[in-house]
Amino acid sequence: MKRILVIEDEQHLCKQIATILQAEGFDVIRTTSAAEGIDFARQQSPDLIVCDILMPDLSGYDVLNALQADINTAMIPFVFLSAKANHSDIREGMNLGADDYLTKPFSAQELLEAIAARLKKQEKLVNRVQVLCQQLKNLESLIEAKENLLENLTQELRRPLSNVNMAIMMLEANSPQERRQYYLQILKDEFEREITILNQATELRRLLSPENIKLLHQFNLLNKQW
């Protein structure tokens, strides 16, 4: 059930709006105080706010500014109500970040259509944010996997170096011919091993797509040594 906060200083109109919304299945919080409305928004996390502009304690613009300054309420859709119908007033509300503007008097249908349109737009926005968050997680996993691959590759490439270094030193020491062949064979074997590792790294890099990262994580393969 969607929760809607109504902030309207005219008590009769505030109650009337709440009755219309409740009849449509909305959970409604209502108040005639702008300051109280700000507190309700922060405490109750409504899905949408319907707010009058001209109120005795604070204006609707003040309410909108206060809520947009709070990260927890900044994204709540906001519909202004006002008897002021000139273009500059509407533009001011929109420039501040309001999602819609209803001029008094308005019909129940106009109110419901405005709310339905804002909630639908908000739902699309939330879905888009969720998709972007998942894409970000996939990217982070891909970066982590490539870093693990690079670390493992570095370790594997270091291991043959001690054998290569030892073989070179023994060859430089004028070892007997039979031993020279032995050390040459070591160099050849380690060379082939290095080539194999590099080929494996190239293939793994090609396979490290975002789609494969989830599978690799499931089987805990990313941190395993080759």
Rank of each mutant, 00 (worst) to 15 (best):
M1G: 14
E8Y: 03
E10G: 05
H12A: 08
Q22W: 04
F26V: 09
D27I: 09
D27G: 05
A34L: 06
E36C: 10
Q44L: 06
C51F: 03
C51Y: 07
S59L: 04
S59T: 15
G60T: 03
D62R: 05
V63W: 02
N65W: 01
N65G: 07
A66T: 06
L67V: 08
Q68V: 11
N72P: 01
F78T: 04
F78R: 02
S82Y: 04
A85Y: 09
G93V: 01
N95E: 15
D99E: 11
Y101N: 02
Y101Q: 08
K104R: 13
F106Y: 14
Q109P: 00
Q109C: 02
E110H: 07
L111E: 00
L112S: 01
K121Y: 10
L136E: 13
N138M: 10
E140Q: 14
L142D: 01
L142S: 03
E144W: 04
K146C: 10
E147P: 07
N148K: 15
L149T: 01
T154P: 00
L157N: 10
S162A: 10
I168K: 13
M169V: 15
L171C: 06
A173Q: 15
S175H: 03
E178V: 10
Y183R: 08
L184V: 11
L187A: 07
L187F: 12
L187H: 10
K188H: 12
E190N: 10
E194C: 08
T196Q: 07
I197W: 03
N199P: 03
A201C: 13
E203P: 03
L204V: 07
R205Y: 15
R205T: 08
R206S: 10
L207N: 14
L208M: 15
S209K: 11
S209W: 03
I213A: 06
I213N: 08
K214G: 15
F219M: 15
